[in-house]
Write a protein that binds this DNA or RNA. Sequence first.
DNA 1: CGTGTTTGACCCGCGC
DNA 2: GCGCGGGTCAAACACG
Length: 194
Amino acid sequence: MNDIRSDGYFTSNFGLSNFTCSSSSSSQAYADFLNHDGFKHGVDPSPILVSDIGALPTADVDCAGILKGKCIEDPNEGRKAAKDGKRKGEKARRPRHAFRTRSRVDILDDGYRWRKYGQKAVKNSKFPRSYYRCTHQGCNVKKQVQRLSDDEGVVLTTYEGIHSHHIQKSTDNFEHILSHQLHIYGNCTTTALF
DNA sequence: CGTGTTTGACCCGCGC
DNA sequence: GCGCGGGTCAAACACG
């Protein structure tokens, strides 16, 4: 199900989609986020910061439904940790990882059910940031979705926490949604779906 | 009626 | 201390 290609990219089939990451931390991030085991590591140990986001290549989806992209570690973990009640300077226990995807739709279906609990205007951006929580009982995974102001075709999704359960939607549903989306937009090269 | 969204208020940390 | 910005809460609302 998982494979590291010769070019260092990490490909994994999570049931709903194929995702490609470029570093071991990225693959672990996605493994954590999707609650999967058995990942290989050691390709590229260097983390990529959200501040470098402008220099990163953008994720894309080809006509076979293969999503390619990079995930980014969030340097803002300490601040979030402090807000969660931890002491200043204490390392955050819950990693946050961001994924850039090129998509016309803001909501990328990753197979989990999310409940929106907030939306905020972002400074220096004309697009708001949306906040989502996993609706599964006992699972406190969160994600933020924001469209980049300098590239309106790019959606930045930040995941925080680890799912304590399996994907809640079936592959059949995903395929149904995918075919529906492709029917709507008629251009699968610019539509990203998980 | 259950579930999810909207949106203004609120809280907190940080910088000045 | 104060203002700003990010993040969260919760009441009201919409929808199937």
